[in-house]
Design a binder for these strands. Structure first.
Ligand SMILES: [Zn+2]
Ligand SMILES: [Zn+2]
Ligand SMILES: [Zn+2]
Ligand SMILES: [Zn+2]
Lengths: 159, 159
DNA sequence: TATACAAATGTTATATTATAACATTGGGAA
DNA sequence: TTCCCAATGTTATAATATAACATTTGTATA
């Protein structure tokens, strides 16, 4: 899935992140941006402690050694802005890869390769409509939807 | 959602469980049955340690105090037979409530009430088809699908 | 019946994921 | 300047899950 210009992809995402943060008067601090960048480095889902380790590797002189709450706070912030998503079925996190407008909502479907870890994110359309209709039919009010597909991606099937 | 005859509901599920286990030459031992019964007691999702606590309460003389692996082993067994499902977004487990035939597969959609904990399980039809089509479109081979809706159930909205 | 094997269970310890609680810092607003 | 509050730092611990090895139990078969 790295058939695209990933540097451009990252820059686009970071620009959008700044816009979204500004529009909500939320502060995309260096630390939060660092976590976002770590996730944007690849279209893979990483665990919180994987991210922590990378933060420690990237740690420069004079900075204090990051601790778990640091990661979880950044993740929470980014999740709230919908800049990242959590893969509930594996306790991991990936950067949103949907090209969207500021304020645009989207219901994500994640296709996670259990071989290489890549995540392909799609927008749920029909599938989501179906869920909301079904919920309506018995009076359930949906607050949050989780749609994840675990499996093997195209390139991993070739091997 | 307890507008049904729950004793009958439980018995039906347990009969089916025996049939499914037999058909796969899998042993539904007393311990495994105990865990299934605990989950069947209500249409709620319970955490592994909640189940463990109940097992300990139900512990009779001479039996040894159950430990975490005991619960997780039983859960794994029941998950494999599709007799229970995991709510990935809250690390909890509930008894399957789909009336199905032995050997019948189903793709579950769980509607979890964040107020009362009740789970309503539906079979994904349209939604699932949509997912598989989408996956096909970029060569992704789906092994397992997770569809969860978190929200508020009808009766909790009345309060 | 005796032996041997495998599945299930028991037991202890520990790994992994996540949060509570409180202290400190730093950048505006008044 | 003083105050406030959001952000970060720090320490400890909670919650979820599994590894590793010992023991039991049922049953196949020699
Ligand atoms: Zn997204
Ligand atoms: Zn792959
Ligand atoms: Zn089910
Ligand atoms: Zn409810």
């Amino acid at each position: 899935m790295l058939s695209h210009d990933h540097k451009k992809c990252i820059n686009k995402s970071i620009n959008l992140a700044h816009k979204i943060a500004n529009s909500k008067a939320a502060k995309l601090t260096p630390q939060r941006l660092q976590v976002l960048r770590i996730l944007l480095a690849g279209h893979k889902a990483l665990g919180a402690y994987d991210i922590l380790e990378i933060m420690r590797e990237q740690q420069s002189e004079g900075q204090s050694r990051p601790q778990p709450p640091t990661v979880y706070r950044a993740l929470e912030f980014l999740l709230n802005l919908n800049l990242i998503h959590k893969v509930e079925s594996q306790n991991s996190y990936y950067a949103c890869m949907i090209e969207k407008d500021v304020n645009e909502q989207h219901l994500a479907q994640a296709f996670i390769c259990d071989n290489c870890g890549n995540v392909e994110e799609k927008i749920a359309e029909t599938g989501a409509r179906n869920l909301y209709e079904k919920a309506d039919s018995f009076g359930f009010k949906i607050e949050h939807v989780i749609m994840e597909c675990r499996g093997i991606c195209a390139s991993c099937q070739l091997v």
